[in-house]
Computed example of a mutant assay.
Amino acid sequence: MTALDTPAPPMGGRRRRPTPYEYEESVRQPAQPRQPDPPIYRALLARWAAAGRTLPGHGDPEWSRVAASPIWPSGPLFGG
């Protein structure tokens, strides 16, 4: 018997089992209307904005400036 004629060895280890089918809703539900922010959250956002902090859901100008700078020490971050 040659190597080509020998049966393949049994596969070792455990076999993965497919995950069981789970029920999923086939009808899309309408989006819920957005609730206004609670007063304490609005007050916190106003305080952060007054302090010049980055607000959730708004762009961060400092990060944009840093990410757009060249990686070598000759860009605007390094006085060049």
Rank of each mutant, 00 (worst) to 15 (best):
P20H: 02
R16Q: 12
G52A: 01
R15A: 10
P18W: 03
P9A: 15
H58D: 04
A46P: 02
T54L: 01
P61V: 08
A49S: 05
P56K: 09
R14W: 04
I71A: 07
T54D: 06
A43Q: 14
A68M: 12
T6L: 10
R17I: 01
T19W: 11
Y21C: 01
R47A: 15
P39W: 04
P7G: 02
P39H: 02
T54H: 08
D5Q: 08
R47Q: 13
R16M: 08
L44D: 14
S69N: 10
G12L: 06
W63K: 11
G13I: 00
E62W: 12
Y23C: 00
P33W: 06
L77C: 06
P18N: 07
R15H: 03
G75V: 09
W72A: 08
G79M: 00
P30H: 01
W63M: 11
D37Y: 11
E24T: 05
P76D: 10
P20F: 00
P70D: 12
G80A: 10
W63V: 13
A68W: 12
I40V: 09
P38M: 12
L55C: 13
F78A: 14
G57H: 09
G79E: 02
R14Y: 06
R14C: 01
P38D: 12
T19V: 11
L4W: 08
P36D: 13
V27D: 03
W48M: 02
R53K: 10
I71Q: 13
T6G: 00
P76F: 02
P30K: 04
P36M: 06
Y23P: 01
